Amino acid sequence: QKLALLSNAKGVRAQRPDIQKQTASLEERISTLRREKQRVERLIEANAANQKQWDDIESQLEVLESELAAQQTLLMQSTQQVSARSSSLEIQIAQLEDQLQKTRVTSPITGTVLNKYAEAGELAGMGTPLFKIANIENMFLRAYVTSDQLAKVKLDDEATVRVDDGEGGSREYEGRISWISDKSEFTPKTIQTKDERANLVYAIKIAVPNDGFLKIGMYGEVLFQTGNQK
């Protein structure tokens, strides 16, 4: 539909008359007669021409100027009609582009697609999940601290995150505490803390720049800068 409208708009614009080109012949004839009229006027002053010659030229000028005015009026009307049709088509094209724009799905964040729930061409209703996307340029490690450790950490504190490198060694990343829970919870079974006897812990998040090695779901160890506590 858009291609058809664009084609129609192009065709309509092609119908716009070139007023200057289409009136050039008449204007040239009028210009020639005006020069001839001036020549005859000089001859009359020198008694080398008569008044009838001047009158004939004047009559021809009046006819041609009338024809030129009529032609210009018709061409202007035609131009206005073409402009109106062109504007109407441009409005339709703009409305169609707006409708098409609303059908495009764009992610509100820049990231990596983790899961795809729909395929191209499928019908998706409002609120239907299409993709799971995550920004993995900055990762967040969720860790847990005891109440004793909680008293020694605060937002924006520096922390070192250590992860296995898969070759028997480890990698370390410098991060900052970006979130601290205000509620305690029972220690998750998969989590180890310095004091394994602690039943209640507080969740925190450490923001870590990712060099491409870190993956979602990886386990890590946190070393706090305050006394190197784990």
Rank of each mutant, 00 (worst) to 15 (best):
E172I: 08
K116Q: 11
M126I: 15
M126D: 10
Y173A: 07
R162A: 08
I133Y: 05
W179Y: 08
V163S: 05
E167S: 09
D157Q: 07
G168K: 08
E167W: 02
L100M: 15
V82T: 14
L100S: 09
E119Y: 04
G168Y: 00
E122H: 06
W179N: 13
K116W: 01
K132Q: 15
S170I: 07
R171T: 00
E137H: 12
G166V: 02
G111H: 02
P129H: 05
V145P: 01
R142Y: 00
D157H: 04
E97F: 02
A84E: 11
L100I: 14
I136A: 06
Q99D: 15
Y173W: 09
R142D: 04
A124I: 15
S181T: 01
L96S: 03
A124K: 06
T146L: 06
V161N: 00
I109V: 14
I109P: 11
E90F: 07
Q149M: 12
E167P: 03
T128S: 14
E119K: 07
I177S: 00
A94V: 06
E172N: 13
L141E: 00
I133F: 13
Y173S: 08
A124R: 10
W179A: 12
G125Y: 12
D98S: 12
R85C: 07
I91K: 12
I91M: 07
T128P: 03
E172V: 06
N115Q: 15
D157S: 04
T160R: 12
T79F: 03
I109S: 09
D165M: 05
L150T: 03
K132M: 14
D148Y: 11
K152Y: 04
T103D: 09
G166F: 00
K102T: 05
L96K: 11
L150K: 03
G169M: 00
R85V: 12
Y117F: 13
Q149H: 02
G125S: 13
